[in-house]
């Protein structure tokens, strides 16, 4: 069992061309899993990129990014039953905090 690699909960996709290199996502990411490239993109910005590990799938980088689709956050899919419980819990949390 110990040889099993533990997958990150989250994954990040960044559209290099849409990104304007503002760096808000870099600042926002709690585990600091996003960085700005050294190279320039099509528009002359240093696009953000996913450092490759550590993403929890929290989604705050997505909400912070001013571009509609520069960031896409993915999360580890789980069996349907588990997902249902999870979404109910999230609902409860959202209500309590309203």
């Amino acid at each position: 069992m110990s040889d099993i690699v533990k997958q990150d909960r989250g994954q990040l996709r960044i559209d290099e061309d849409e990104c304007k290199g503002c760096g808000l996502c870099v600042e926002a990411c709690p585990p600091k899993a996003i960085r700005l490239s050294e190279h320039l993109n099509h528009s002359g910005y240093r696009p953000a990129y996913y450092a490759g590990s550590g993403c929890t799938g929290c989604g705050i980088c997505f909400m912070t990014c001013p571009e509609p689709g520069a960031i896409t956050v993915l999360r580890l899919a789980r069996p349907a039953a588990a997902r249902q419980i999870d979404s109910k819990m999230q609902g409860a949390v959202a209500c309590a905090s309203n």
């Binding site: 849409e18 304007k20 503002c22 760096g23 528009s43 997505f62 001013p66 571009e67 509609p68």
Partner: peptide, 18 residues
């Protein structure tokens, strides 16, 4: 780049649009 907005980098309008 028809998927990109006209807003400056880091503009709040883009965040609010989202």
């Amino acid at each position: 780049l028809q998927h990109q907005t006209h807003y400056c980098p880091g503009c709040g309008h883009g965040i609010i649009h989202k």
